[in-house]
Amino acid sequence: MTYAISVLTLGGITVILAMGLNVQYGWAGDLNLSYYAYVALGAYVCGVMMLPPPNASEGNFYVLGLHQSFFVGTIVAVAVCAVVGLVVGSIALRRVTGDYFAIVTLSVTLIFYTFSDQYAPLFNGPQGIYGVPHAFGGVLRFSYSGYNLFLLGLVAAVLVVVVFLFEVLYRSAFGRTLRAVRDDPISVSAFGISPYRRKLAAYVLGSAVGGLGGVLLLQYVSAFSPAGWSPLETFLLFSGIIVGGVGSVWGVLFGASVVLIGVPQAVLFIPAPAGAATFLPALQNCIIGLIILVFLYLRPRGLFPERSPVLGFDGALKWQSRPVRFVVGRVRTLLGEGAA
């Protein structure tokens, strides 16, 4: 039971992360390899907001140490991620797109990683931050297992909000324009929309969601250090997007759940050779890499390709399921388009 809660909590966080990345890759069409830097940044900032001032005699150093509540820590962490995203995005997106953008963002991640690892006064170097207090620990005095359940509920609530939000955004003018920018930025600009601004908005939105996911991740492990993440982590999230359906909110929800929760669990059933601690994680990454390739070859738009909102009878844009669309299409054909 405890194990199931733990898996579901981590899985929920991973799905939230994939959602944020999908805004950048699926909607705006930017191959952003800096995503996980914002996850780490969110975790670190929330951590140093919540922790008491560092105790130098124990060899701990980090900035801030303000001993604030989880609520304040989260808001500050998300805000910091959004602002950093705004600064980095406004520089990178103004000049480059496509593969050069991927190279620049990967470089940014590595620079951040190096500093978080080597420059101890920032986030305590390779030791990282640890012993982060529980969320709302002062108010809700949960037992250990009670807290785990609470955290799962919190993650689920955030996930529901994120899915609802993105669902609305996808159909809104914002999402629509962003998808148009992805399809052809130049013809979008010919109609008076700045592709740069839209891409920047997507980058900032994704960064903020990444930061929020980082905060939850920090609560889950109650510590964060350079050993706990790598720049390649972003790429694992891509597998959820590609399998589920690039751009599709529900597709990514499904794809990320299956690939990023299912594969690591399934791999556990494979007997590992004794004494090879790296075998299972390595095998897991191999399988995820292969899954990405198979989907890119055979089904590049994923299991549930992004859907198009259609016009309902009440004059609003809404979803139409495949069977309904099929029937409506048939009826239209029978009634005769030729009459038009």
């Binding site: 390649l232 790429f235 390595a282 095998l283 990454n285 191999c286 995820i288 890499g289 292969l290 990405i292 390739l293 890119l296």
Partner: peptide
């Protein structure tokens, strides 16, 4: 993806 596979 290839990079990931080769490394692992």
């Amino acid at each position: 993806a290839g990079s990931l596979i080769i490394q692992d």
